[in-house]
């Protein structure tokens, strides 16, 4: 049994994220508790923390800052406490040192790097990078266990115009190919982030969530 706090800070498709977690939890049959919350007390007690995010970097960061005590608490629980953490889409981009979407905005700084506009080498490619794409591991990671990767692997659902360029190569876990490599997953210790939406990625996404619920970093 594990408890997951999905952080509600006014951004993101919270219902979809909760639905996907609840489906996986039901299949695990271990009475996991999934809570969508803005309450620091609930986050403080959770075994796992998930940060969703849909929208612009600056708006999402401002939304997170607007929840009293939340950023300090995340720091305490994730960085100092080692609680397994999953950031999704902009919720993953916020881990960077800074976002460069329209304006420069300071991020949480957990994964050194900047969030920059994607620039496919082929000018004919559309932006946003929207739809189903395959992922390529840059290094092994337990959250990708049991997921077929590579050109003929499972697909993940992406929708983004910016991506996190990590300063440390070791923080890059997987890429996707769209006129060049784009960051698909980042990770370090108990922190993991996906640019794609696991909650919208059918088999691949549900497997990743299952791995996250059982993760003991």
């Amino acid at each position: 049994m594990t408890t997951v706090a999905i952080i509600d800070y006014g951004a993101g498709n919270l219902r979809s994220a909760a639905n996907a977690f609840e489906r996986v939890a039901a299949e695990r049959g271990q009475s996991d508790v999934i809570t969508v919350t803005a309450d620091p007390d609930v986050v403080r007690k959770a075994d796992r923390i998930m940060l969703p995010g849909v929208g612009a970097f600056a708006d999402c960061m401002a939304g997170l800052e607007a929840v009293p005590g939340m950023i300090d608490l995340l720091d305490e629980r994730v960085i100092r406490g080692g609680t397994p953490f999953l950031g999704v889409c902009v919720g993953m981009q916020l881990l960077a040192s800074e976002g460069r979407e329209k304006v420069v905005t300071k991020g949480l700084g957990w994964i050194p790097g900047a969030v920059e506009k994607i620039a496919p080498s082929d000018r004919g490619l559309k932006i946003p990078h929207m739809g189903w794409n395959t992922i390529f591991p840059a290094r092994p990671h337990v959250l990708l266990d049991g997921i077929e990767t590579g050109e003929n692997g499972l697909h993940a659902y992406f929708v983004h115009s910016y991506h996190l360029k990590t300063d440390n190569p070791s923080d890059l876990v997987a890429t996707t190919n769209y006129g060049g490599a784009l960051t698909a997953c980042v990770g370090r210790d108990n922190i993991f982030g996906t640019q794609f939406h696991p909650e919208k990625s059918q088999a691949l996404g549900l497997k990743l969530i299952e791995n996250f619920l059982g993760w003991a970093p």
Partner: peptide, 8 residues
């Protein structure tokens, strides 16, 4: 490029 064309 391995982004797939979508059917909706």
């Amino acid at each position: 490029m391995s982004l797939k064309t979508r059917i909706i």
